[in-house]
Every structure is written in structure tokens, then in C-alpha cells.
Design a protein around this nucleic acid. Sequence first.
DNA 1: TTGAAAGCGGTACCAG
DNA 2: CTGGTACCGCTTTCAA
Lengths: 339, 339
Amino acid sequence: MRSKPTQPRMSDVAKAAGVSTMTVSRAFKQDASVNEKRRSEILRIADEMGYIFDKSASELRTKRTGFVAVTVPSINNSNFADTVRGLTDSLAESGLEALLGYTNYHIDQEEQIIKQLLRRKPEAMVVTGSTHTDKTRSRLKRSGIPVVECWDEPHNPVGYSVGYSGAAAGSMVADHLVERGYKRIGFIGGHTQTDTRGTDRQRGFTERLREHGLPHDRIISVGPPPVGMAQGARGAQLLLERFPDTDAIMCVADSAAFGAMTEFQRSGMRIPDDIAVAGFGAFDVGAFSLPDITTIDPKGYAIGEGAGRLIAALLAGTAGSGSGSHVSIEPSLVVRHST
Amino acid sequence: MRSKPTQPRMSDVAKAAGVSTMTVSRAFKQDASVNEKRRSEILRIADEMGYIFDKSASELRTKRTGFVAVTVPSINNSNFADTVRGLTDSLAESGLEALLGYTNYHIDQEEQIIKQLLRRKPEAMVVTGSTHTDKTRSRLKRSGIPVVECWDEPHNPVGYSVGYSGAAAGSMVADHLVERGYKRIGFIGGHTQTDTRGTDRQRGFTERLREHGLPHDRIISVGPPPVGMAQGARGAQLLLERFPDTDAIMCVADSAAFGAMTEFQRSGMRIPDDIAVAGFGAFDVGAFSLPDITTIDPKGYAIGEGAGRLIAALLAGTAGSGSGSHVSIEPSLVVRHST
DNA sequence: TTGAAAGCGGTACCAG
DNA sequence: CTGGTACCGCTTTCAA
């Protein structure tokens, strides 16, 4: 039985190496001036002792944490996963890490998560969407660090933003369906209150239908996000009950589109002959399904990458314009066989 | 223009509230003894000043960070997402947070991530799988904190573990296919070197085929993980080239199974009449596809929950048995129409 | 290139 | 219930 299983500190390493604590500290820095031979010797000894650098102590003294906090609604969504990858990759180039929190699509949970993350003093903050509680907004504004809102084009931005207009994306799909000759077109989405980005798409979609002089009231709401396959299937049932002569629908996400499409197929309908189906998000499932599903590619990786680059520039003081600037990422229509 | 935009410290709040720093510190703790009226007053003032508690300083002094580090291969996989949810939920009951890192299915990346996470002094560490670099193993062992390996039944455990035998899961599927009368059965999976958990399933699967006296060499390897829909589709093509008379396959994951199944369907084959398809993971896509896909439910949420409870017990000193104990989560077969 | 001392912002500990 | 003091482990600063 060992007497004291306490972790070694930097001073313990210093003692073992016969140098001062400062020299050990320098040995652990990239560019500090230490005798090279001595440095490798120190690192060897530290490793041997099982020394683990204490980030809390370092952070307290340097006031640099080297990380960016990120909040996403869900960790199981390929769009947000792409954004996190893009962000992680681009931040890595500046030696920054990303620390992830997830909100479950609830702005109240977001408030808690952001509060906790801010206590760790991130160098910048990336959040998803532009709908936040008042407390969150004021905390972010007062935090003194760069804030980037992703996946949206905020009307009332907290700071910077990287994304696209969800409404514009919705109208792209509407135009496409109208061009294809569909006349009785519906939309399946989530609750207007909670699925805020989905509601933007819906608004752009139905608004454009109206401009084309088509009915735009065939809207099915299937509950709070995430709007997945089960919700899409349920939405398809509701649509057939309420608007049985619908000839095309857009779903708020590809997962829902797949759920709806397979539900239609189960009831004997053919896609797109009996009903056309479009989605959003360019998820894998819509690329491999039978038929494959027309969708919008929102460029999730590019959004994350853009946010990461913006932050790197801001922290390096290389930023161009002033606060509140927006980086636009243009989504693209991907036409496939379901329409 | 303000002169000094520095964030207020606890002592600033104390000054503003006319109390000592200690009293403010106590006001911020759950169960500390402070005059209730004074406490709410202090919290109000702190909020008004935009004070943000400094976790680094607190951690340094208390040596408690209140978080558990978790590494998962991918953030875009519903199985791991379930585990993270289960873990987060159960840790929350003990007032602990989960901090997430992801490894991209690479043990070298895992080594880096774990090194970084350990510097933040987590109270415990949850990792996915039981394959790690030697450095990672020794770091984890020397860290002095509880370590839980998830999603596996390690032969050579680092500490605790919560999961199931991948091989046993594989044999369940083999038994099912044999029972259904299939004779020429294949497997589509990832590289043996990198897709370690998938390889466990494959071993159990082919081993059981051998025990049934059936051919067990119809193995298609489609590259490193993640083995998704594209890989499944490619695997289906390769299978038809190499073993055209195959009458059933298991895929290492439902995503791959869906990719393979739709590829078969595109080439005119019917499922399960021309070929049966089974997957693994109980992903949504296999529940809504046409036909729906027979799979194994690995109970990802339960794994996370189990790990969280184990950690909570260990940190509270309420743990039962000694080091190296394993919590078994039994996966279940979900029979659907694709077999 | 190296070392000594002070201090980052909280909290353990002890006194009142 | 409240306050004073020392100190957590590392790094800034200054001197050698």
C-alpha cells in the first residue's frame, strides 16, 4: 500500500530533474527558451512520473483557456455534426479546441448550458440559431468574447453570424415543385414555437406558394423537434386524412421526408407519381432511399468552417468589419427522383 | 468609451454588496450557511454586475471539477448519442456534467483527446470500446480516477466496463438467419484493424455459422469506420460480384444494411425473397425502411445510464465490488421483415 | 538560458 | 452566520 497517491505537480518534476519549476514550465511551452537537451530530459522525466499538466492552474494565471464553446440542439444530426467537424477542423489550425454542449432544442436548456460554459471562460462562443432567452442574450453580449450565431441569418443578432436564410431555402423548394407542375402542395414540420429554424423554412415555402397563386394552407405540424422519421410518418397519415388530394409535400428535414415517403409507400402510393416528396438537409438516408429524395444541402461543414475562421481572425485581431457582420453560406437545391 | 472592460471578480461583488468575499463565495454554494435574505441580495447584485463565476479558480482550490470526460468515436451516430444522453441524464442526478470529445474511430486521435481531457482533471473518464494505444492505457490507469469502458466486454480492462459481448450479438443474428433457413450467408463490415467492435460482431457471427456447419467465408470488408450507407451499398456490389448466390447477409450496422438493401433493390432483387438483410444498432432508418430491417438493439441509453450510475456510486464511495468489475447490458434481437 | 518571488480568483480553515 | 488568512499549481515579471 502506497502512502500518498497524490498526483505529481510541476515542482515535483522540477525536483526530480534538478531544475527550477520555471524551467519545467518553459519546457512544456512550444517556443520558450530552454536548453534543448534539458527540455527533452524534463519531458522524459515528467512522462515517467505520470505527470499531468494542470490546465485549471494554467488558465487561472494566463487567463487563456484555448477553447471555444459550442452549443448544438442535438448531437445526433448529421447537419450539426458537420458543423462541429468544420469548426473543430478550422479552430485546430489556430491551436484552439471546441467544447461541446447540447440543448435538446430547448432555449431554457440552452440558457443553462451557456451559463455553465461561460464559467469556464471560453475565448469565443458559437451557438446554433438566433432564438435565445433574454438572459442568454444579455449574458452573451456582456461576456466580452466574440459570439457567432450559426445556421441562421439573425434579424436581431447577438454578435456575428454564419448561415443562410431558412426562408430563402424554403422558397427554392417551392419554386422547384411549382416548376415541376405540382399544384396542391403541403408542408410537414414541427411546432412553430419550438422548431424555429424549421418554421423559417416553412414561412419561405408557403409564402412562395402564395406568390405562385397556389393554396398554401396544407400545413401539418407534428410536434416539437427533433422532427424525425416517426414524426414524418405520422405527418403523412395526417396529411392523407386532412388533404387527401395533395400532390407534393416538403418536409422540414430529410429524416421526416423519409418517414413520410415510406408511409405513403406502405399505403400503396408511388413516389413521385402519386405524391412528390422533398426534404431538407441532404442527409444520407435521402441519397440512398428508393426513390432518392430531393433536398436542400445547407452546407453544414462550411458553416462550421466559416465560424471557425471568423473566430480565429477575431482572436488574432485580423478581423475585417465591425460587430454584427454576417457571413452568408448559400444552400443549394439537390434535385432527385422523389419530385 | 469605457476605460476598463475587465470582468468583475468575486471581491468586486463583495464590495458592492458590503460583505466579505467569503460570504459571496458561500452565497454561490448550494448548502452553505448564509443569511437567506443576504444571499438573494448578493446573487441579485452579482447578476446585475454581470459577474461570471470563475470555474478555473474554484477548481484549482477545491480540486473538484464536477465533470466526467467522455470520448465517443462519432457524434453523428444514434447509438453513441443515446449513450451520451443516458450518461448525461444519470450524472445530472449527482450534479455532475459530461464533457464530450470525439475520436473519429482512431485510437491515435483518442490518445490526443484523452490527454487533453485529463489535463482538465475530470472526476472520472468514460471511453468507448476497449482498444486503446499503450500510452492511453497507462495514462488512464495512472490517472487515479475511475475509468469506464463502454460498448464492450473487455478482455483486458483498464478499469470498469459497461456493455455486452459483440461476438454474442453476432451469433444471435447468425442463429436467427439459420433458423429462418438461409444457407449461404455473408457479412459486410469494416476493416478488421480499425472497426474493432464491428469485428467482434463479425467473429461471433461467422463462428456461429461454422458451428452450424455453414460456409463462413463470405466476408466483405469495405474500409475503415464509420461503415455507413455508401459503404453498405458498395459492399452489396462486391458481394454480388464475389458471391452471387448469397441468400442472406448481416451488415455491421443498420446504416450499412440500408445502403446494401437499397442497392440490392435497385438491381431488381426483392428483400427478403432474393436476399435477406440484417443489421445492427436499431437505428431509425431500419425501422421505417421498406421492408424494415431485422437488427440488434444494443441499448445505448442503458449503457450510458449504467456507466453514469456506476461513476456516481464510485465517487460517492458507495461502490460495491472491486476494480475491474463489469456491468452487463444484454442486447436484444429485433426481428422484422427483411429476414 | 535560468531562477526567485508575487499573484491569478476562488475556498479551506480557523476564529469570533 | 460572518470574516481574515493562507494557499491551490502554474506563469508573469524581473533579476542574474
